[in-house]
Design a protein around this nucleic acid. Structure first.
Lengths: 130, 130
DNA sequence: TTTGCAATTGCAAAAATTTGCATTATAAAA
DNA sequence: TTTTATAATGCAAATTTTTGCAATTGCAAA
């Protein structure tokens, strides 16, 4: 590793792609720019970064965990289990729910990237027809 | 595989342990009773079972996904990121939140095993002192 | 600048997981 | 019961991820 740290490259990659990537996908993207990079370096950097809250890790139902850059405005996702569609939702309503949970359980919620699974409206229509 | 199906053994194992196990832990438990079983058989059975909703898969912040039997009364967890403590919470408040999300987004939520990360009351006290 | 320390990286080996394909088991239909 | 089709399993190889350890790097104090 000469100049650039892998962390920087990971941030650039995730920002550029602006979507969820698996650790392997991140590794392969980084390797395009830095062919000699070692896989363990990338995997370890991803782990560090998620611990520090720089990236979020989540299971969107694809079998493997995916990573995403954490930006200023937090967001959450609804994932349709039938068509795979991903709906992004904002903080407000989720935050209200978190507050309730916090009060009831005397617990401070940090979760910054919630994933809920279910059926989107279109797939629900289709299912009703059949 | 002669008599018993691996699925049945997995259910028994998860019920007996009554906790979250990683796929590797499940495989090793099964192997105690069925030494010749192949790892791919166990991994594939776990995948099938989670698709069918027989077991839940979740990331409780330990790095690896964990499996749990799905029983009648659904439950969710709060995981303390400092001490690892796991608090189990019921459906009611969560269900109310899901209803709100469903109405706003015209989406039907299926998620049956929600995990929220944060700080438990005791760790919050400790942190305040230091 | 030089020194020292902690964090990051590479490397090689091990471990965990997935995959394609052939075989076997299970259950429904004939 | 026999036949047939589908699902589950085993096996071997490939792929992905993790680990221990030594070397390198970056940063801050001297």
């Amino acid at each position: 590793m000469k100049k650039s740290s892998v962390e920087q490259l990971i941030l650039e990659t995730l920002s550029r792609e602006n979507t969820h990537l698996t650790s392997l996908q991140v590794y392969e993207e980084i390797r395009k720019q830095l062919p000699a990079v070692n896989s363990s370096t990338v995997y370890r950097a991803l782990e560090r970064m998620s611990k520090r809250g720089m990236v979020s890790v989540s299971d969107i139902g694809t079998g493997a965990e995916v990573f995403e850059v954490v930006k200023n405005e937090l967001h959450h996702h609804l994932v349709c289990q039938e068509c795979g569609r991903i709906i992004t939702i904002g903080q407000e309503d989720v935050r209200t729910f978190f507050k309730v949970i916090e009060q009831i359980n005397d617990f401070e919620v940090f979760t910054n990237h919630l994933i809920l699974f279910g059926l989107c409206s279109e797939c629900r229509k289709k299912d009703n027809l059949s």
